[in-house]
């Protein structure tokens, strides 16, 4: 007999982890190409609101997911244009992408605050109250399984495909890659847009299942935690997933501590994910002593010298 609270905890862990993981995985792909995109928070927000609006207006859930993913991807292409094509500062561009994304989604979603969804992203089986671990694992939301496929797919893509090898080469040494005939700008542009698409998927999961409603600034720092997760995972998909589960667990555990007999102020519960993220980053940096596994060219604009 497994504790019903434990089942609930596991369920909540997987849901929170899925949300963080997909966005982190997208950022991982972008960063592998040597482009740092600090706009994750804004991209999630854009995907979240466009997906939600489409779901309200068309009541077609798959179309809503598609719109959310595509609009985030198009939004990310602003960053690609400014940093890849026009070679401007990646930190500045990414930060502004976040600010613009949050403002834009608040503007778009103004008339959608408090609206109720008719159709949501549902779990794949009809089990509503899982009673054991197996049932938890088979009753998750469809996006959870998509995330697993994406994880395996990304790992395969990075290690075993030409595109993945090219991506890594460009991110490690864009000058040599260029002289070997690889298309640096094209690779980086695609990687940035793919990162945006992943953030968009994370966003639609947020508004179409995880919460599910729309309100201003509802991403509440998850994009930044996703950025920290990429560092935590050492730019490796499986380790990033492990990190997401750890963060998801903590996010799920802290509000439940009260049921286990701990007295905790709800205000302290709210700030714990951010405190833990900082703590984890510090411990990790000390432990690794500078060898983080980051792509060498990250943040450096590529420019082919012409004479």
């Amino acid at each position: 007999m497994i504790d019903i609270q434990l089942i609930g905890l596991l369920n909540a862990t997987l849901q929170a982890a899925t949300l963080l993981f997909i966005a982190a995985l997208g950022e991982l792909i972008t960063e592998k190409s040597g482009i740092l995109n600090l706009g994750v928070e804004g991209m999630i927000s854009v995907g979240a609101v466009t997906g939600f609006m489409t779901a309200i207006n068309t009541e077609n859930i798959f179309f809503a997911v598609l719109v959310g993913v595509l609009s985030s991807s198009v939004f990310a292409s602003i960053h690609a244009l400014v940093t890849v094509v026009l070679k401007q500062d990646q930190t500045v561009s990414g930060l502004i992408l976040t600010i613009l994304g949050l403002a834009l989604s608040s503007l778009l979603g103004k008339n959608y605050v408090g609206r109720k969804l008719v159709t949501k992203l549902e779990s794949v089986t009809s089990i509503t109250e899982p009673s054991n671990i197996i049932e938890v694992l088979i009753s998750q939301n469809i996006i959870f399984y998509v995330a697993i496929v994406l994880m395996i797919g990304t790992s395969f893509l990075l290690k075993r495909t030409m595109f993945g090898r090219r991506l890594e080469a460009v991110g490690e040494d864009s000058k040599s890659s260029d002289s070997m005939g690889l298309k640096v700008a094209k690779t980086q542009f695609i990687a940035t847009c793919v990162g945006g698409a992943f953030a968009g998927l994370s966003g639609v999961y947020l508004t179409l299942s995880y919460v599910p409603y729309w309100t201003d600034n509802m991403t509440s720092g998850r994009g930044w935690i996703a950025l920290a997760l990429v560092i935590f995972g050492g730019w490796k998909p499986y380790r990033t997933a492990l990190g997401a589960i750890l963060f998801g667990f903590l996010e799920a555990l802290v509000p439940r501590l009260q049921t286990y007999g701990f007295e905790l102020s709800p205000y302290i519960v709210k700030i714990t994910p951010y405190v833990i993220t900082i703590l984890v980053l510090v411990i990790l940096t000390i432990y690794k002593g500078g060898k983080t596994g980051a792509p060498k060219n990250i943040g450096v604009p590529f420019f082919r010298e012409n004479r």
């Binding site: 930190t91 700030i271 951010y274 405190v275 993220t277 510090v282 940096t285």
Partner: peptide, 23 residues
Amino acid sequence: VFGVNEIITTLLTNYIVFGVTIY
């Protein structure tokens, strides 16, 4: 001291301080 990325830590402190303010 440790070389932790300051962009992420300064950003996260915003959420922490805002939480403290609410408290």
